[in-house]
Simulated assay, not measured.
Amino acid sequence: MRKRPGRRLPAICLFSAVLLLAAVCFSVWRSYHSLTVTTYRFPTDKAEGPVRLAVMSDLHEHVFGQDNAPLVEAVAEQRPDLILLCGDMLNAYSASSQNSTELVGALSKIAPVYYAWGNHELDYLAAGTSPLEEELVSAGATVLDRAWSDLDIHGTPLRLGGLY
């Protein structure tokens, strides 16, 4: 009995599609569960010395390990002068701000923390779930909502603003 060559092609295509889908799913899972530190350097004549910023956004309540310890350790290793949280640290439908406020509390022991709203914070505030700004300030953050702070980092003046 002779095999028909036309039957192998659909099976190969199906196997390839399943393999591709598995690779995409693994990549998404890995990006959601792995912690990555990326360093950027911006040389300028306007700074008296280096200004080190740790910038995070879009955690959407994701917790890395027990109490975010791996995340907090990774930030501490960078020895930042300021920690900037640029929104979407929680979800619009979050039951509370506990994950975000606990993270702010841990990070504020490393360096001053500045927090700006993302669309999820605005939706969370609109839902009236909790007094988010008060909770973040109590945890140690300066919330910049259509506001700015003038700072001096190692002799370098810096104006830091927050605007959704």
Rank of each mutant, 00 (worst) to 15 (best):
S31E: 09
V75M: 11
L85Q: 00
P80Y: 10
H33R: 14
G118I: 01
R30N: 13
Y124E: 08
K109A: 15
D123E: 13
P43Y: 09
R79F: 02
A92V: 02
V104H: 01
G118T: 01
Q66C: 01
L103Y: 07
A47Y: 08
H62Y: 13
T38V: 12
E73W: 01
L82F: 11
N119S: 13
W117T: 10
M89S: 03
F64E: 08
D81H: 14
A74N: 10
D45I: 03
E102W: 02
D88T: 00
K109P: 03
L59G: 00
W29G: 08
A54F: 09
S57F: 02
P50W: 02
D45A: 14
L35D: 12
F64T: 10
S100P: 00
D81P: 04
V55F: 14
V63L: 00
A126P: 00
G128Y: 04
H33E: 12
R41H: 13
L85P: 00
P50S: 07
N119E: 08
H60R: 10
L59M: 12
S34D: 10
W117Y: 15
S108E: 06
E48S: 12
G87T: 04
L90R: 03
T38Y: 05
A106S: 15
D123T: 05
V72H: 11
G49V: 05
E77R: 15
Y114W: 03
I110R: 07
Y93N: 14
A54W: 11
Q98A: 13
S31Y: 03
M56T: 04
D67L: 04
S34M: 04
F42C: 11
K46C: 09
A92D: 14
F26T: 13
A95H: 06
T101D: 05
H60Q: 14
E61L: 00
G65F: 03
L59E: 00
A127R: 15
P43I: 08
A76R: 15
D81V: 01
S97C: 09
L71K: 02
Y40D: 12
Y32D: 05
S108A: 15
I83D: 08
R52I: 12
N99T: 11
L107W: 02
A116N: 03
G49E: 13
D123C: 06
L85A: 03
C86W: 00
P112I: 09
H33P: 05
F64W: 14
I110V: 15
V28F: 12
A111D: 02
H33C: 08
V104N: 01
Q66T: 12
L59D: 00
A69P: 07
Y40V: 09
M89N: 09
Y114L: 03
